[in-house]
């Protein structure tokens, strides 16, 4: 069970949240100029890293706000929690994964 620190409400159990998947995917602003392959990259292709994942969660059973989380997909350790619109922090880790 993850204990997720909502930036607005504090630490809460995972079951209060819904997962909103990979973060920092910007919708292209020049849509009419994109090729089908570029659209496919935006719509479907994902980083799916084994290690730090920058992702979004929503506090569905609390404040109902979205925020970003940097979390390790192997250990589930949460390295950082930050507001929507903030840049992804660089995570330095000892094991270098």
């Amino acid at each position: 069970m993850l204990l997720i620190p909502c930036p607005y409400c504090g630490k809460r159990d995972e079951h209060e949240f819904t997962y909103a998947r990979e973060g920092h995917i910007a919708r292209p602003t020049n849509g009419e100029q994109l090729t089908d392959a570029e659209w496919a990259q935006y719509l479907f292709m994902r980083k799916n890293p084994k290690g730090v994942h920058y992702e979004r969660w929503m506090h569905a059973k609390g404040c109902r706000r979205y925020f970003n989380v940097a979390r390790d997909t192997v250990t589930h350790e949460i390295y950082a929690v930050y507001e929507m619109g903030q840049p992804a922090p660089v995570i330095e880790r000892e094991n270098g994964r």
Partner: peptide, 18 residues
Amino acid sequence: GHCGVLAGMAGFRLPIES
């Protein structure tokens, strides 16, 4: 489940999440 890791080694991405 590791297909994304191997695709990364080959330099492309997949529409897959693990």
